[in-house]
Amino acid sequence: MFQDTVVIIPAYNELDTIFDVVSGLRNLYPELPVVVINDGSTDDTALEAGRAGAIVINHSFNLGYGATIQTGYKYALCKGFKFLIQMDGDGQHGPEDIPALIVMVKKGECDIALGSRFLGFGDYQSSFVRSAGVLFFRQLIRLLTAIKITDPTTGFQALNREVFSLFTRDFFPSDFPDADVITVLSRLKFEIKEVPVRMYPSSGRSMHHPFNVVYYLFKQLLSAFLIPIRSHQTYLKE
């Protein structure tokens, strides 16, 4: 099932969780290569990830969440992988949900499968701000693309090579690739599907959730509204 597939985990100061996340994956799927991209952590995240059996790529300094997963895409592209799974390093995502995600992409039912915490496994509790944000981006994506995405900020995804090679281009945001990236994919006619996944409580601060909510909202809004008036060439520029 995991031929030509790689898991990438962006990590910034995830010392408490990274070992369990990587070893959990390695135990469950020994044949699946796990790549941890250490985004200039100030603790021993890289060491722990390596000890658990991950291939570790180290950024010289902190670049941000988007740039970190993009390093994973670039690695997967240059190593010739055909499929890619990305998940967070804070233990929020369960490795047992990986087959459901990757099967969708491998069967060709979609180009990108997004793991949604709001479909089926309904025990996920989130903060008011986060719920409001999710609701807002759902509507925004719906408005811009006419597709319904229940969990637009999910970091648990499976992608095929066409999608992750597109994401290695310069348009891909360095900070928070969420609603804007989904909108780009939809505009370029990629097939997007959601798959129900479990979401465990985050054991620490996730780098996917920004502190600066106002900046995040502004940035997503601006880029999402610019997408329809941008030329397709913007996304194909190296």
Partner: peptide
């Protein structure tokens, strides 16, 4: 410049591996 620096760091990280 920040895009160029980001690309350089990414390429450096992969090359180092």
């Amino acid at each position: 410049l920040s895009t160029q620096v980001k690309n350089l760091i990414q390429e450096l990280a992969i090359a180092r591996l």
